[in-house]
Design a binder for these strands. Structure first.
Length: 458
RNA sequence: GUAGCCAUAGCUCAGUUGGUUAGAGUAUCAGAUUGUGAUUCUGAGGGUCGUGGGUUCGAGCCCCAUUGGCUACCCCA
């Protein structure tokens, strides 16, 4: 017999957990909708060629690959053997695995836009709330199966898109009571300009990887890492000066304008940041020049949403602009900008800060106790019209001792127990017990709907 | 992929330098209560101490291996 168990990094969601998750998901979805984004869903599996090479070497390793079927079919044996040899040599082979679980929602969006380019209107504003899978080692706040909520705008270069997305971050976190969130913002163009000053474009990746670690490992270690990656002392000094930029958002922008006075792209980046800052007055947004974000495809403004410091959860959302995403799928020059919320981490944060509202833990409305055959038949008759009017409930499945039935009602968090014993039955009455307050009263069966409406507002 | 910690009842965990029959809380079931849950009291069932080897007169405890979980690194939501 197989031992019951779950794959590493996956979870079951009980009804209680689901009530909290639904609360988060519905909040996000509603805000996406009021900004007039429209929904999209894509398959859990994609062709592996769609995903490979989009997330960097590290990302490729973390993609869950799906084994092809029919590998042992005699006509496939040779191909299969060769494919496995490639795998063992570290190369992904489509002879063995030609499909994979999606790793995020952005690349599937790009794939969708490229495929449907003639059928969609630009700007295309879509939201997508679905699971993604990563073969990462699980730990606090990190799962192998988790849910992302993405909102993206495809087909517009306007910086109002960035501002709108930043405002969505604010609205969602405010609605969830997560008022002390932080939204960090930076610009890839600014980082690219810095790289140009310090050794050239090909140094962009090692540069961003190193400075991204600043608040974790400190300036000395960052310096070490930069030197190890071939940056000269002089270049390291420039980078240090760049990382030293402090003050308000406006002060940071002023300093950046000075530094990049001769770099057109750098100045463009600063201008973009300035614009976003100007249109996000209500948002708790701050320019963070160490923010890099790993994903290779960002080209402009980048975002990272962080939980309040004391919960130590790090990033609960991220996003940015990618000016040529669909280019990877043959449709050139289509810009996009998007953000993502990590529901599972937001859940952990709300749990830790005790921010789930009490009123989401509702149970079913009414349990009719089963105290006899004709009594329970009567209960079923009474329940029918109630269900038609959206009251939820059931008749206890068998005739047993009353305390057992009451206990069931309690455990399942029913609002009311409806008791029809021989006495009530003969009088056309029903005893209604409010399980939250313990009060009970005998009412006419014909009054059931009015009675429940009074308490449950439906 | 690398490192550290952990694994005992359905669940959360005690368990003394290695020493008789491995405990508690909780959950489940039964009873106190033949028409009243969440609170009270009584009782019962429930264990190959993750798995496989080893040391020892003797192992839940020590050693090795293995599997799983957690945490951290890399990276990320």
């Amino acid at each position: 017999m197989a031992k019951a168990g779950l794959p590493q990094g996956t979870r079951d969601f009980s009804s209680e957990i689901l009530k909290k998750r639904t609360y988060i998901l519905e909040t996000i979805k509603k805000i996406f909708q009021v900004y007039s984004f429209e929904p999209l869903e894509t398959p859990a599996i994609e062709n592996i060629s769609t995903l490979l090479g989009k997330y960097g070497d590290e990302g490729d390793k973390l993609i869950f690959k799906v084994l092809n079927n029919g590998l042992n079919d005699p006509k496939n044996i040779e191909k299969s053997k060769k494919g496995f040899e490639d795998l063992l040599a570290g190369k992904v082979s489509e002879d063995v695995t030609s499909r994979a679980l999606r790793y995020d929602l952005t690349i599937p969006l790009a794939r969708f836009v490229a495929m449907n380019f003639n059928n969609i209107y630009l700007p295309f504003k879509r939201y997508q709330i679905q699971q993604v899978w990563r073969a990462d080692r699980p730990q606090r706040g990190r799962y192998r199966e988790f849910t992302q909520c993405d909102a993206d705008i495809v087909g517009s270069y306007s910086l109002s898109c960035e501002a709108e997305l930043a405002n969505i971050y604010h609205d969602v976190f405010a609605a969830l009571g997560l008022n002390r969130y932080e939204l960090k913002v930076n610009n890839r163009k600014v980082l690219a300009a810095l790289a140009r000053k310090c050794g050239g474009n090909n140094k962009l990746i090692p540069l961003t990887v190193a400075i991204d670690k600043l608040d974790k490992i400190g300036i000395e270690k960052v310096e070490e890492e930069l030197k190890a990656n071939g940056f000269t002392d002089e270049q390291v000094q420039i980078i240090k000066k760049f990382l030293d930029i402090t003050g308000t958002n406006q002060q940071k922008l002023d300093t950046l304008n000075e530094i990049f006075v001769n770099d057109e792209e750098g100045l463009t980046g600063v201008k973009e940041l300035t614009n976003v800052i100007q249109h996000t007055k209500e948002v708790n947004i701050s320019i963070d020049l160490t923010l890099a974000r790993g994903l290779n495809y960002y080209t402009g403004v980048i975002f990272e949403a962080k939980a309040p410091k004391e919960v130590n959860m790090g990033s609960i959302g991220g996003g940015g602009r990618y000016d040529d995403l669909t280019g990877l799928f043959g449709v050139k020059n289509i810009p996009g900008v998007g953000i993502s919320f990590g529901v599972d981490r937001i859940y952990d944060v709300l749990e830790e800060l005790n921010l789930f509202p009490k009123n989401i833990f509702f149970g079913p409305d009414v349990l009719f106790l089963n105290l006899g055959e004709s009594e329970s038949s009567k209960s079923m008759e009474l329940l029918k019209p109630l269900r038609k009017r959206n009251f939820s409930g059931e008749v206890f499945h068998e005739q047993t001792k009353i305390d057992k039935q009451m206990k069931y009602a309690d455990r399942k968090n029913f609002n009311f127990a409806a008791i029809i014993g021989p006495e009530e039955f003969s009088q056309n009455m029903v005893t209604m017990k409010n399980l939250k307050t313990g009060e009970q009263q005998k009412i006419l069966q014909s009054e059931l709907f009015n009675f429940l409406s009074k308490f449950l507002h439906k």
